[in-house]
């Protein structure tokens, strides 16, 4: 027994010590899963002689919960637009002043004065995209640029629809279809939204995040989708077309930021500056399949990315709508709608 205990003690000591030993020359990145170009990371490691630890999360909220608890050991996170605002408000991000850094000149001016970080005191653009839907034009050959395909579908698409399993994406699309504002606390309008969603739900086959699998396996012919996912699905089902509905669609941007109390602050700052270099932003886009917001990065991007209809918005398409975080009362109402809808 004693030997067993001693063994355990040694084992746990090793387990704790092995990572306590790391110090200088490291950078711990916490990014969305499968979203970071390994090539870009290798380049950073070689250039600055820093060892990068890369881990992934699957939602802004999971990342926030962890960061809020404190002492995560991470230096870099990549929150979405509204989450940047939330995290700045909660004092979770380090004000590293990217706007004073050498490569800041490369940031597209369009992405400097954004509502989630005006003037870019905390974060820099990582990737941006849109959330709309994609349709198989071989199945449905009418006008695709309308949300009616999701909420009032033509017969060929009935029962062939996948919606994202995401409260905000579904409710926001419903609000747009009815012409109501986002972050809406108006109860009469929300009652209409609930009625609309409940009426449309029998036509939906599934509600799932795994858009690419749903479309390529031909389980559905139309799916709510991020533009990058739509592009990947199109590679395997060429008749898919990404829609820019006239009622509007969501835009989003993920941003690189440094956590307050980052153990490797200097390396984190190097990384922020590094991410604003066109070549590195290009590498990221080639891997993650989204646009990046760094000027000159197109020179380093694969040609098919530059001409993809999912990335290059057609003239006349509405401006993407970057949705601000909603107050708790609204979230509570949304939550109730969602629960009613899926009970």
């Amino acid at each position: 027994m004693k030997t067993v205990l001693r063994l355990l003690a040694t084992a746990s000591a090793v387990a704790f010590a092995s990572s306590a030993a790391m110090a200088a020359g490291e950078l711990n990145i916490y990014n969305w899963g499968n979203y970071t170009s390994p090539e870009m990371i290798k380049k950073f490691e070689e250039k600055f002689d820093v060892k990068v630890n890369l881990d992934g999360y699957d939602s802004n909220e999971a990342m926030l919960a962890k960061v809020k608890a404190g002492d995560t050991g991470y230096d870099i996170v990549v929150p979405g637009d509204y989450m940047v605002k939330v995290m700045i408000g909660e004092g979770l991000l380090e004000e590293v002043k990217p706007n004073t850094m050498e490569n800041f000149k490369n940031v597209d001016p369009k992405w400097v004065d954004v509502w989630w970080d005006p003037g870019r005191n905390y974060s820099v653009p990582y990737q941006w995209g849109t959330t709309s839907f994609t349709v198989d034009t071989a199945v449905y050959d009418g006008d695709i640029d309308t949300l009616a395909l999701l909420f009032d579908p033509p017969e060929v698409l009935q029962g062939r629809i996948n919606m994202l399993n995401d409260m905000n994406d579904v409710i926001n699309a419903g609000l747009r279809y009815l012409g109501y504002g986002r972050c809406n606390g108006n109860q009469d309008e929300l009652r209409e939204v609930l009625a609309l969603l409940s009426k449309a739900k029998p036509h939906w086959r599934t509600m799932d995040y795994a858009v690419i699998e749903k479309l390529t396996s031909k389980d559905v012919d139309i799916s709510q989708s991020w533009n990058g996912a739509a592009m990947r699905a199109r590679a395997q089902r060429p008749t898919l077309k990404y829609a820019y509905p006239k009622e509007g669609f969501t835009g989003w941007m993920d941003n690189v930021a440094v956590l307050k109390g980052a153990p490797n602050l200097e390396n984190a700052k190097l990384f922020i500056n590094f991410m604003m270099e066109p070549e590195n932003a290009g590498l990221t886009s080639n891997f993650a399949r989204y646009a990046n917001g760094i000027l000159g990065s197109d020179k380093f991007m694969e040609p098919e990315m530059l001409s993809a209809p999912e990335i290059v918005m057609p003239a006349g398409a509405p401006e993407p709508d970057f949705v601000t975080p909603c107050p708790q009362e609204v979230v509570d109402l949304y939550n109730k709608i969602w629960t009613q809808l899926k009970q």
Binding site: G33, N34, N53, D55, G56, A65, G228, R232, A233, A288
Partner: peptide, 24 residues
């Protein structure tokens, strides 16, 4: 695991979970 893992402690299920949205 997702909630407790620290830097460099990604397990296979976490790796895959993160990949869902971008396609497995």
């Amino acid at each position: 695991t997702l909630m407790i893992a620290g830097p460099g402690e990604t397990t296979l299920p976490i790796y895959i979970l993160g990949a869902i949205r971008r396609g497995v």
